[in-house]
Design a protein around this nucleic acid. Structure first.
Lengths: 201, 201
DNA sequence: CTAATGACATACGAAGCGTACGTCAATGGC
DNA sequence: GCCATTGACGTACGCTTCGTATGTCATTAG
């Protein structure tokens, strides 16, 4: 017997709404997405939405958090797989850039997200990603591998570069051709924090 | 006698609407700004607006273009005043960052602009700013002062860094304290394109 | 078995955008 | 100097959307 508890049912409702939100926000943009339509798509009404998320912005926050969390962990994994340190930092940035090729990511996280929810550096998920970058930079600082600059500032700007690079690639006519160029440029700028010029790519 | 030609009158109407748009978009955000209200503020109705700008987005485009054009020329001037070349590039970025401290710039150009009008690198005004950066980089490339990377990619990312740096400063609790840190970080990253490590700040 | 809580649906009001139409002044031809 | 036409702008209407207030039904507690 499958005991369907109410908590599980509500979680399922939330999941359905978030999935519908992802789809609608990605396809029509935030303001273009109709709450009536996206709830009806999963057999619900706005009643469920306002009960679970408070308002339209609440659903957007949940959607952004879900996507952004996946992005942060995946970028972090890429950095670990590259062995951490300087190589890991570059891998992290490259992974971040590649993920932003997805239209869903571009539209929801990069374009509408900041406009609706405010500065991305204030998002919980972005903070997680930022903390990872900061940690990597602190390791490099301990090895005296980077210049004595403000770690948080560098981390924020590096994330910003990756984000912006992703935007450009996504808007490009030929994303596949642009990607390697922008990754190289990213690594070039990032190398600015290194003390030893030999460490450049 | 003051001959008020119709072209001049229409230009005045456009100017009034753009001014009202700047104010409304800055204070309430794009979606929060009511066309009824902002037109009434300057003694007009939505009729004038739809006649001159087509739709709400059209007014937004005009407002963004006006602000962004001023930003581009001012940044360019700062670069020229610094003597062009490497110093000019840094001055350009710093000027861009400082301008973004204005709430109007932050809200309209940095947050709502991309969401409403799409990727900033496609805007005419942004292209002007980008061309200036590209020109400066090409000068440096001719002097063999920078690494052999894709100029356009570097230019776009540098602009992106400045933009992102500005966003952070604007969202910061203490903008005045954050500003020097991000400017230093910006110059640090920018120095990544230089060949000679001595040229760093 | 009954009362209460919670999850969701339904109904309602208000606001906003875009468009179709109306109006009045200005211009161009004769 | 008169009239038709154009253009700039105002007015009125419909449609969509959001948020809330209220209703309903199942589940749980006592």
């Amino acid at each position: 017997m499958v005991t369907t508890t109410r908590a599980a049912k509500m979680a399922e409702t939330r999941a359905k709404l978030i999935a519908a939100g992802r789809k609608a926000f990605a396809e029509k943009g935030y303001s273009g997405a109709s709450m009536d339509d996206l709830t009806a798509d999963v057999g619900l009404t706005r009643g469920a939405l306002y009960h679970n998320f408070g308002d339209k912005k609440g659903l957007m926050a949940a959607v952004v958090d879900e996507i952004d969390t996946v992005m942060a962990t995946r970028a972090h994994d890429a950095g670990q797989k590259a062995g951490g340190g300087w190589k890991g930092l570059l891998a992290e940035g490259a992974a971040y850039i590649e993920m932003a090729l997805q239209p869903e990511v571009q539209r929801i996280v990069l374009l509408d997200g900041p406009a609706v929810l405010g500065d991305p550096s204030q998002w919980p998920s972005q903070n997680r990603c930022l903390q990872a970058t900061i940690a990597t930079l602190q390791d490099l600082a301990a090895e005296k591998a980077i210049k004595p600059v403000d770690i948080e500032a560098i981390a924020r700007l590096l994330n910003g570069v990756a984000l912006n690079a992703a935007l450009w690639v996504a808007a490009s006519e030929t994303p596949e051709a642009t990607l390697p160029k922008v990754v190289a440029a990213f690594e070039c700028l990032a190398s600015g924090v290194l003390i030893t010029p030999e460490s450049r790519i």
